[in-house]
Amino acid sequence: MNAPLIDPFHRPVSYLRVSVTDRCDFRCTYCMSENMTFLPKRDLLTLEELDAVSTAFIGMGVRKLRITGGEPLVRRGIMTYLKAMARHLDTGALHELTLTTNGSQLHRFSQELFALGMRRVNVSLDTLDEEKFARITRWGRLKQVMRGIEAAQEAGLRVKINTVALRGFNEGELFALLDWCARRDMDLTFIEVMPMGDMGEEDRLGQYWPLRDLRARLAERFTLIDLAESTGGPARYVRLSETGQKVGFITPMTHNFCESCNRVRLTCTGELYMCLGQEDRADLRPSLRDPAAPPLEEAIRNAIARKPKGHDFDYSRQQVAGQMPRHMSHTGG
């Protein structure tokens, strides 16, 4: 049980992203359609099953656990699961428990999150303009997110802002976002929009802003120093020499990060995706519910043995090659 998880390309799997719900209180245009059909409750893993799978992975060498969704903080009883995971922080088996959120519920949970041992969260935020924020999220309110970020910082949580780079939408806010994060002592990571979910190819191609172009714009104003440091995920970081600010880039399209991939993703229904950009998956739910199914550890190891070398996202030739039919909210951000 304690043997580490090693994939066929000799990469250790030390990072598990767990989607606890496909539901969200926003409807971001690059993430899901406005009229989503969500999963029935019976299809979701229970909190106890989420605990069992996460604990099994931790027993096999996972050291970083990121909770995602949908919006994870809208899952009823989520703190019960998070407190269960905190016991692995207490033993030292788990090195980091963290969360990606849209920020809408942080004002309710930040104190509890810090108390159980969480020390940083990622907040998805693509614009500082209220009207544009309402348009991109469809249902979101910027003031509520700002309230959540403030509450998180007051609780002692380190906040990192994740911004999806969207051509024609937030190109003009590049330096405003940088300045705002610098004033609040928050790191900022930019992410290329990925072809996931059926939104229409024209939308995808129109939204795509390569981060090499964004980085070139930064370099017109700042000296960018590449950093070797990593937070265990796919981001590559630079430091702006003039300000000392750290900026990250997640580039699944222009420069993938597959060669060092240490991650797998568990959906809220118990499907394990060994690669975000591939459709192959393993259903772990039978091992949790059917005594005749293979034991959970065996099912996990068999899945890791199928982890591919990399994904095939590609926007070349003006078409969305490698597009995934599932929405990002299904797999987890």
Rank of each mutant, 00 (worst) to 15 (best):
N262E: 10
S230C: 09
R236M: 11
R263M: 05
S260M: 04
L240H: 06
G233I: 11
T251R: 04
T254R: 02
V247I: 15
C261F: 08
F257G: 05
R236L: 12
V264N: 06
I225M: 09
A235P: 00
G233D: 15
T243K: 12
Q245T: 12
C258W: 00
K246H: 12
L266R: 06
L227S: 14
H255W: 02
P234L: 05
P234D: 09
H255S: 10
F257N: 05
T231V: 06
M253Y: 05
V264F: 00
S260D: 15
K246M: 08
G248M: 02
A228L: 01
Y237C: 08
E259I: 02
R236T: 15
L266P: 10
T267D: 09
F257T: 15
G233M: 05
K246D: 04
T231H: 13
T243G: 08
N256P: 10
H255D: 10
R236C: 14
D226I: 02
T243F: 12
M253F: 01
K246N: 08
G248H: 03
E259H: 11
T231Y: 12
I225G: 00
G233H: 14
V264W: 00
T254N: 09
S230M: 08
F257R: 06
S230Y: 07
I250R: 01
T243D: 00
V238A: 10
T231Q: 13
L266S: 02
E242I: 03
V264G: 01
H255P: 02
L266Y: 02
A235T: 03
V238N: 06
T267M: 01
A235V: 03
P252C: 07
G248W: 04
E229Q: 12
N262R: 13
N262G: 02
G233P: 09
A235S: 11
A235R: 03
N262P: 03
S230A: 08
V264Y: 00
E259S: 10
A235Y: 12
C258I: 05
R263D: 03
G248D: 00
K246Y: 09
G233Q: 07
A235D: 07
N262K: 15
R263E: 05
A228E: 13
D226A: 15
G233R: 07
T267S: 14
S230H: 10
E242G: 00
M253A: 13
D226R: 08
S260V: 07
S230F: 02
S241E: 02
G232L: 08
V238G: 07
L227V: 04
V264Q: 10
G233T: 13
R236I: 13
P234A: 10
P234S: 11
C261T: 14
E259Q: 14
A228W: 02
T254Q: 11
A228D: 14
V247M: 05
Y237P: 05
E229Y: 14
F249S: 05
R263K: 11
T254S: 15
V247F: 04
S241G: 08
R263T: 07
S230T: 15
T254H: 01
T243N: 09
C258H: 00
G248K: 00
F249N: 01
V247C: 03
R239C: 14
G232W: 13
C258F: 00
R239H: 10
A228K: 14
T254W: 01
K246P: 01
C258P: 01
